[in-house]
Design a protein around this nucleic acid. Sequence first.
DNA 1: GCCAACGTTGGC
DNA 2: GCCAACGTTGGC
Length: 153
Amino acid sequence: MKQYWLMKSEPSDVSVDDVLAMRNQTVAWYGVRNYQARNYMRDQMKVGDGVLFYHSSCAEPGVIGLAEVVSTPYPDHTQFDKKSKYYDAKATEENPRWMLVDVKVLKKTRLLSLPELREQPELEEMVILKRGNRLSITPVTAAEWKCVGKLLK
DNA sequence: GCCAACGTTGGC
DNA sequence: GCCAACGTTGGC
C-alpha cells in the first residue's frame, strides 16, 4: 500500500530547483542523522511512495514540490566521507549507520506556506504542524495528502 | 537506567 | 539572533 511522507530540506542546501536540475531530477536524501527519520527511510519507505517536498529554515517555509521515492534504502555515503559535515566516525562500510533513499521531484508547485497549512482544519493533526516537531521526515496520511493536493491545484 | 548538560532544529 | 522543544551524551 502506498504511503505518503513529508521531507524537509533547507533550500540553501538542496532546493526543489536544485533537484530539478539534477540528472533524472533525483537526489539521494543524504544527511539525515536522526534515528527515527532514518528508520522511516530504511524500514517503511517503498518505491512509489508520495513525498511532499518541504523547504525549511528559510524565509518562507512550506511545501514547494511533489516527489516520490524511487529507490530502496542504501547507505548514505556521506557518513564515510571525512570531509563531509555528515561524517560519522562510528559508521563503517561493513556496518553503516545511516541509510537513505532516492527521491525524484515530479513537479515544483506553488509555495504552500506553513501559515496556510496551519489554516486547514483537515491538517490539524498533521505531524509537521504539531508543536515542537523537529523531525525532518514525517508520515502524511492519505487524507492529508489529498487535502494538500487540492490546495495545490 | 536516570537525568543533567549540551547540541541541534527551525520558526519567528 | 532568540529560544522552545527535543534528541543525544555521558557520569554516576
